[in-house]
């Protein structure tokens, strides 16, 4: 089963994929209106808001937790390599 390279969500059915296309590596939530994958900042913003909403976390804590998760994801390896340099 494929996992979204940008947020880690498991993609079980075609409707979970960007544009309903199972050949793509990212999910429907990590997609811009034009079909391209969201940027690092867009994804970070969305995931932080999701954590604050679903768990009521302090925003700074959510930012740190999202950062730790995004570090593990394939889509953001180059971003973190650049940031850590």
């Amino acid at each position: 089963m494929k996992k979204c390279i940008a947020c880690g969500m498991p993609m079980r059915q075609a409707s979970d994929f960007a544009q309903g296309n199972p050949d793509l590596d990212y999910c429907k939530y990590c997609t811009r209106p034009d079909g391209r994958m969201c940027s690092f900042e867009e994804n970070q913003h969305r995931l932080v808001n999701l954590m604050v909403k679903t768990q009521g976390l302090d925003r700074a804590v959510a930012v740190a937790q999202v950062d730790a998760s995004m570090r593990q994801l394939p889509a953001w390896q180059a971003h973190y390599q650049e940031e850590d340099r």
């Binding site: 999701l50 954590m51 604050v52 909403k53 679903t54 768990q55 009521g56 937790q65 730790a68 998760s69």
Partner: peptide
Amino acid sequence: AAQATVAVHFQAALATTSVKSIAPGLLF
């Protein structure tokens, strides 16, 4: 990370029913 994912699943389950108007995070 697991807790965050379970919280998202909780919210998806909440959407299937009618509950009091309380912030999803507080319900979880």
